[in-house]
């Protein structure tokens, strides 16, 4: 194809998106669109499955049977969400194994928040409430993103996700109204997870490299800073309600803007964790690599068995 033809196709393509038409797997798409989507969808999928680990850490120690089944179901949902997203990504012509390879070699990123350790039970509450809360803010707009398979996966994810945040908030609420020891546990978890949750919504707009292009392709509908403000505005009253304190001395309601003002985020810490120096980066990755490597003989066995059965069927037919 000549450059001019490509340019023409690109124009038609952009117009389709602007008209809110969906792009489907076999449609022509610019290479950059494909690559960007593979990057973002797989990053999202990786975040789901790496995100299983910090919470998985508490399944065997959950304090009641009710909490145990809820947490188990929640972490299982994350596996499901990872699966939906990998499937969406595979429609772009890349296999799940290739995507795993990128994760395992550190080439692909996942949400940095999962590189923090879960040290008490209250962290299950804080993750559900704050991390899932921030994730939902990110995810809901993606239900109408331009790439059909991604949008459909996100509709399913968001539908299932709705119990996750409630589950977390309920844990926090129960702790906050419990003994002084429990309340302290809840406050401590909020203190540790608050800032990483704010960072989860991405670098400030000035620092963000992808925002403009992503807006055009409806991979993003609002900027990182807008999303962050939305998250803070909705979360602060919830903390007030259960009597916990947001660990930000600069946080205060601004009558004029109708939003909360908040303190400076420690971006050095953010970039350090992104670059692999967070408290659990190594552990998370090696847990994933181990599961995959130790599972190889199992996956091979299933394929070998399937082939034998197929051969048997063929022989019978002859």
């Amino acid at each position: 194809m000549s450059e001019k033809e490509i340019k023409n196709l690109e124009e038609i393509f952009e117009q389709r998106i602007a008209r809110d038409e969906k792009i489907e797997p076999k449609d022509w798409m610019p290479e950059k669109y494909r690559k960007t989507h593979i990057r973002q969808i797989s990053q999202h999928a990786h975040s789901e499955i790496v995100g299983m680990l910090p919470e998985g850490n508490w399944i065997t120690r959950a304090p009641s049977l009710r909490r145990k089944v809820a947490l188990l179901a929640k972490v299982q949902d994350e596996a499901g969400h990872g699966l939906y997203l990998y499937s969406a990504c595979e429609t772009l012509g890349i296999s799940r194994e290739e995507l795993y390879e990128q994760l395992h070699t550190g080439k692909a990123k996942y949400s940095s928040i999962f590189n923090y350790p879960t040290v008490t039970w209250a962290d299950m509450g804080a993750i559900g409430w704050l991390v899932d809360g921030a994730a939902i803010i990110n995810q809901v707009p993606l239900c109408s993103t331009s790439y059909g398979p991604y949008a459909r996966a996100m509709v399913r994810v968001c539908k299932e996700e709705s119990f996750h945040q409630r589950q977390g908030f309920e844990i926090m609420m129960k702790l906050a109204e419990g003994t002084p020891e429990q309340k302290e546990m809840a406050q401590d978890a909020l203190n540790r997870w608050w800032w990483p949750s704010l960072m989860m919504l991405g670098p400030t707009d000035a620092e963000s490299v992808h925002t403009e292009q992503s807006m055009k392709w409806k991979l993003k509908r609002k900027t990182n800073d807008e999303l962050r403000q939305q998250f803070i505005d909705q979360t602060v009253p919830q903390a007030d309600l259960i009597g916990l304190t947001i660990p930000d001395p600069d946080l205060k309601w601004n009558e004029k803007t109708g939003h909360y003002d908040f303190g400076e985020i420690d971006w050095d810490e953010f970039w350090q964790v992104v670059k692999g120096h967070g408290p659990c980066n190594k552990e998370r990755l090696s847990a994933r690599v181990n599961a995959w490597e130790e599972g190889e003989w199992v996956r091979d066995a299933a394929m070998a068995y399937a082939k034998k059965q197929e051969d048997k069927k063929l022989k019978k037919a002859i």
Binding site: L83, E90, R96, R152, A153, R299, A302, M303, A306
Partner: peptide, 11 residues
């Protein structure tokens, strides 16, 4: 509904 990976039809 979507897709998934499996070694054979039963699975």
């Amino acid at each position: 509904f979507g897709s998934l990976h499996a070694a054979d039809a039963e699975m």
